[in-house]
Amino acid sequence: MAVDEVSFEAGREVLAIMGPNGSGKTTTLSMISGALRPSSGRVVVMGIDLWGSRDEMVRARRYIGYAPQNILFRSRLSGLENLVWIGMMRGLGYRDARRRARELIERLELEDHMDRPVEKYSGGMIRRLSIASALIHDPEVLVLDEPSSGLDPRALESLWSLLLRVASGKTLIYSTHNPYEAERFSSRVLMMHRGRIVASGTAEELIRIYSPSPSIAIYLPDGTKPLVLEGYRSFDEKSLIAVYEARDPHRDLENIVAAYTRRGIIPIRVEIKRPGLGEVFIIVTGTPLEEAG
């Protein structure tokens, strides 16, 4: 079973479903967007049962705009044509679909590229086009599966500044495995682990309730390995960052740096990080987010 006993409500807000790969985020989003029938339970959208009668199924889906993680656009068609295609499929007449597509292309700052084939779009442009495709029929509920996947920090900020603008006044439910994104851009966060919701609330509430310790990040030079000292949490082999839990941040930092120096390793940079949702996840599940998948 991919998910179990998942139950939540969402109003006009930005709701993040945060969890590692395989935690059940995509399955949950597929079920609430109408792409996957739950084996038990209900999904109610604007008071209509999404998996009810044939008529209810159609009516409820009019309120939903869903962008899967890897939406497969027609690569030889332009961004504008792809949006018209999806708009027509979602019930807009050709002219309305075209008008709405142009409007969204402008709002998502793609107007310089709207007539270019999608195969020439960058990753960031594809993400924005996905969001436009979910918004094409002006739905009340926007469901986005990992909308920022693969984007660098600058592109992430830019995407969210657009997203918050176009989704204003709507329900936005999205998935992420990035605690920073969940904390920074969401009004509420659901944490998922092994198919269940393990914590939910605003980022402030979660940090306050679980009061995680700050962490110390040690940026190591090339060719070095992390020292497994007291409080050692994780090591990112790509960015060579070793993370330690800090009970007394300044004293622990001194001790950790001294340990490295004794072994002839001079860290490039050190950082005391205030506790965030990543740390909350560790307390709730006992596993760092990046290792939990």
Partner: peptide
Amino acid sequence: RREGVIGVILSSPIE
């Protein structure tokens, strides 16, 4: 059935 198409189709209000 292709990934990225089925989701869009099934979540659309189309019989």
